[in-house]
Structures are given as C-alpha cells and as structure tokens.
C-alpha cells in the first residue's frame, strides 16, 4: 500500500502542518515505506497474542483524588501571547 501526495496533503492539513509540494512527495514516499513495514508485520500470524496498547508492560499509576495544584494563572499568562480579564485570547473561533 502506498500513499499519494493528496493523502499526505490531507493528513498534513488535519495536523495543521504546512508543507510544500516537494515535501509532500518526500513524505508520501517515506510514509509509504512505513506502511510496507506495517504490511510485513500484518502478515505475521498473531493468533493467541494479546494486543498491546503500550510498548511497556506497565499498568497505569493512579493517584488519590486530592487537590495539589494552586492558582498559577499570572505566571502562565505572562508567557501567553495575549490575555485579558483572566482569559487567554485567541483568534475568533466562530464566525
């Protein structure tokens, strides 16, 4: 299976990545190579093997339900591009 340039452009758009035509072709080629590796793995008979959701044999660590973090708004908003009335400001999201 191989990816076309159009596929790559669509994926780039979903990830909000700006790529030029030449990059699109390069990515189409290298992503297609990854897909052929996956095809190889898919060909292996994995009957009886439990699928892994994580590469490490670990279980999620859980914490007690306690409030441990306080208000650090002023620190965070100092490094924000724009803030006003305690809110982060962003380009308008609805028309």
């Amino acid at each position: 299976m191989s990816l076309s340039r159009t596929d790559v452009e669509k994926i780039a758009h979903l990830a909000r990545l700006e790529i030029n035509e030449q990059e699109a072709q390069t990515f189409a080629d290298s992503l297609s190579q990854i897909l052929s590796l996956i095809e190889q793995m898919n060909a292996v008979d994995t009957t009886g093997v439990t699928p892994m959701a994580h590469p490490r044999e670990a279980a999620l660590r859980l914490r007690e339900d306690k409030v441990t973090e306080g208000d650090e708004r002023s620190k965070f908003q100092q490094i924000a591009p724009a803030a006003e009335a305690g809110l982060y400001l962003v380009p308008k999201v609805i028309e």
């Binding site: 409030v67 973090e69 208000d71 708004r73 965070f76 305690g86 809110l87």
Partner: peptide
C-alpha cells in the same frame, strides 16, 4: 471528583477564570 482527571487542579465549578488550570 475533587481534582481533575489527570492533574491535581481543583475541579470545582464556578471559580475565577483560569485559576484552576495548572500546567
């Protein structure tokens, strides 16, 4: 819950904006 799903910030409703949003 008292705190958030993946952080120790308070999950209480109605606080002053962004005062319960940690890193």
């Amino acid at each position: 819950t008292n705190s958030k799903m993946f952080s120790g910030a308070s999950a209480r409703y109605g606080a002053v904006p962004n005062t319960q949003a940690c890193a």
